[in-house]
């Protein structure tokens, strides 16, 4: 018999038969990846629904300068999102959403720097970069709260629209948007705005909570005692995913 068979019934280790990590990643990290794939499906479902609705609505065909809000066609997004805090009435298309994008990318960088510091068991730098990441997350959420508030309250003049009320067509001035009325375009546009940016914002919020937990455990020496900072890496994966989703929301909701 072959020399390496020591126990009856023992077999040579095989890649997919247990006892080996075929993906060379820990259980927790793999599960985070597979959770993120399932979350990808959820976000894709929202964006796919948005794309389908947009393609089934008439687009604005006139000249860009002549664009006005109407529920007869899908709005040009850069004319909807042109407000910036403290600059009331000034048209600055996409500037504020650009700032939000920058904040999220920057917080992704500080997150990956925290992960890198964790690899070196450098507790002070993990704490420092986690704090920056948490600050970035809160700033983004604050910006989003302001943007939602502006979107809900609407412009000073509002938009005169013909809508069906109790079965008859009426003409009325609509200010801002909610789930049934929308001064910027068809009600579906506002619904998608609330659902997509709201679902993303909920993810950012949960990410901030997780980051605070990780910061607390790093600061109290939990990971030093454990001898591994891998939790920073797992939560980092989640945080980068939130940044990734924003990249897609930014393109498909605000740019095109």
């Amino acid at each position: 018999m072959a020399a390496h068979v020591t126990t009856p019934g023992a077999v040579e280790p095989k890649m997919w038969l247990g006892g080996i990590e075929p993906m060379k990643a820990s259980y927790g990290k793999l599960m985070m990846w597979f959770f993120l794939i399932s979350d990808t499906f959820t976000f894709s479902a929202l964006l796919v629904a948005y794309g389908t609705a947009r393609f089934s609505f008439p687009a604005f065909t006139g000249k860009h300068e002549d664009f006005t809000f109407s529920n007869m066609y899908w709005p040009v997004p850069e004319r909807v999102y042109e407000a910036v805090p403290f600059l009331h009435g000034v048209s600055l298309p996409l500037v504020f959403v650009g700032i939000m994008t920058f904040i999220l990318i920057a917080s992704s960088v500080t997150m990956v720097l925290a992960v890198e510091a964790g690899h070196r068991m450098d507790r002070a730098n993990v704490e420092k970069y986690m704090l920056w990441t948490i600050l970035g997350g809160f700033t983004f959420l604050g910006c989003q709260a302001w943007e939602w508030s502006h979107f809900i309250h609407g412009t000073d003049a509002g938009t005169v629209m013909k809508v069906i009320e109790n079965g008859t067509w009426v003409e009325k001035t609509i200010f801002g948007a909610n789930l049934t009325e929308n001064q910027y375009g068809p009600p579906a546009f506002a619904d998608f705005f609330f659902f997509i940016t709201g679902f993303h914002g909920t993810h950012v919020f949960s990410g901030v909570i997780l980051n605070i937990l990780i910061f607390f455990r790093a600061a109290t020496g939990f990971y030093d005692k454990r001898g591994s900072y891998e939790m920073v890496e797992k939560v980092g994966l989640y945080w980068h995913f939130v940044d990734l989703v924003w990249v897609f929301v930014f393109t498909f909701f605000y740019l095109v």
Partner: peptide, 8 residues
């Protein structure tokens, strides 16, 4: 589904 939206 973009094609589907266009068909609608």
């Amino acid at each position: 589904l973009l094609l589907e939206g266009n068909a609608i």
